[in-house]
Simulated scan of single mutants.
Amino acid sequence: MESETQMTDVAGSLPAGSRAAKLAALAQSVFFLERRIRLLDIGEDVVALSPLESLLVRHIDLDPGITPSTLSRKLGLSSGNTATALRSLEANGLVTKVAGKDDRRRSHLGLTDRAHHEIARVRAAWARHLDPLVPAGADLDAVLEVLDGITTGLESGPMS
Rank of each mutant, 00 (worst) to 15 (best):
L89H: 06
E44C: 02
S88M: 06
P64K: 00
H117T: 14
A125C: 08
P135W: 00
G157N: 05
S88K: 01
G110L: 04
V95W: 03
G76L: 09
R58I: 05
I60R: 00
E53W: 00
A11H: 08
S79I: 15
K101W: 12
A27C: 15
E145F: 12
G110W: 01
D113H: 00
D113W: 01
L40F: 11
L94W: 08
S50C: 05
T112C: 02
H59E: 14
G17S: 07
A25D: 07
D9C: 13
D63I: 08
L77W: 02
S69M: 02
H117D: 13
I119D: 03
L75N: 01
D113C: 00
L56I: 11
M7Q: 13
R36V: 07
M1H: 10
L144A: 11
H108P: 02
I66P: 04
P68W: 03
S54F: 00
V30Q: 05
K74G: 08
K97P: 02
D9T: 12
V122P: 01
S72A: 15
G153D: 03
P64H: 02
S54L: 04
G93A: 14
G157C: 10
P158K: 07
S79E: 12
D9N: 10
R35T: 11
E118H: 04
V10S: 06
K101P: 13
Q28S: 06
E4P: 03
A120Q: 07
R19K: 04
L94P: 12
N92I: 14
S29I: 01
L89T: 09
L154D: 02
A91F: 00
S29G: 03
P15I: 12
L109G: 12
L23V: 14
V46K: 02
D41A: 13
A27Q: 09
G137F: 00
H116W: 06
V95S: 11
D139P: 03
G149Y: 05
R114H: 05
W126Q: 11
L71E: 10
L39R: 12
L94E: 13
H129W: 09
M1K: 08
Q6W: 01
L49A: 10
L33F: 07
L14W: 05
P15T: 15
M7P: 00
K22E: 10
L147G: 07
S79G: 14
D139V: 12
I66R: 05
